[in-house]
Computed example of a mutant assay.
Amino acid sequence: MKPSIRLLEGRRVLVTGGARGLGFAFAESIARAGARVVIADILADRVQQAAAELVAMDMDVTGLVVDLADPASIDACVTAACQCLGGLDGLVNNASVTNSGGKTCEELDIDTWDTVMKVNVRGTWLMTRACLPALRQSGTGAVINLASDTPLWGATNLLAYVASKGAVIAMTRSLARELGKDNITVNAIAPGLVLVEATAYVPEARHRLYTEQRAIQRAQLPEDVSGAVIFALSDLARFITGQTLPVNGGFVMP
């Protein structure tokens, strides 16, 4: 997506999981919309390569390493991001793991469940908590949590992931009420099945089924989600908070 209007001019935004897939698409689109961006990812080599690619396109992007399962790593990342950007106006909690794809409730093991919850739920909470002082100081802080449409229709054989993204939606509502007094908005974006590396495990037949059951009958690409993220970070959404926006081509219409 290449916005014709620079809705995020001068904003400072941290995007987690920005080294590839949806996160990289978000980082590129947010930077094109005028923001200065820090992308943070556990993939050390890849995050630097991703940042370099965007810098080569004359975007103000920096790469940092973070492990969302490690609270100390999260704190260090946020400190470095704020030093780099001179503050923070927006946070995109994009990073997550699936791990449980294809496993039934009975096949799912405790270690996998705990890993998914540690990154997707606890990591989202800790990253948000670490960013709050800077977001409060901004005066127009915005938090975007990447959920999923799977909790909205009850995807099977994906229990840990679905539960974690349902928790993200619930946290979004609670945080929105808690942080509204600080003029910080908190919203969730719930994509459908997007064609990225992370969904490579999904059988081709299931991709076809998604496409056939969408109102817009084509594959969903990362750039299809970027516009919603830019809008939610912008001043156009300053009176919108606690909401979950499905972006799935009409697969789910809650």
Rank of each mutant, 00 (worst) to 15 (best):
K2N: 10
I5N: 08
I5C: 06
L7K: 14
E9Y: 03
E9R: 13
T16H: 09
G17N: 10
G18I: 06
A31E: 08
A33L: 11
R36E: 05
A44E: 14
A44F: 02
V47K: 02
V47I: 08
Q48N: 13
Q49G: 05
A56L: 07
A56P: 05
D60H: 13
L64A: 02
V65L: 00
L68G: 01
P71Y: 02
T79A: 15
A80E: 14
A81L: 06
A81I: 03
C82R: 08
G87W: 08
L88I: 14
G90C: 00
N93L: 06
T98P: 00
T104L: 03
E107L: 09
L108C: 10
D109E: 13
I110Q: 09
D111I: 11
T112Q: 12
W113K: 10
W113T: 01
D114E: 14
K118I: 00
V121D: 11
W125Q: 06
A130H: 00
L132H: 06
S138K: 11
G139L: 00
L146K: 07
L146Y: 03
A147P: 08
A147G: 15
S148R: 11
S148K: 08
T150V: 12
P151W: 01
P151S: 03
L152A: 09
A155Y: 10
Y161Q: 06
A163G: 03
G166W: 01
I169G: 02
S174H: 13
A176L: 09
L179F: 10
I184S: 12
A188L: 06
I189W: 11
V194C: 12
A200L: 11
A200S: 12
E204V: 09
T211K: 15
R218S: 10
A219M: 11
A219G: 08
E223A: 09
A232P: 03
L233S: 07
D235G: 08
T244R: 10
P246C: 02
N248D: 15
G249D: 11
G249V: 00
G250D: 09
M253H: 01
M253K: 12
P254I: 01
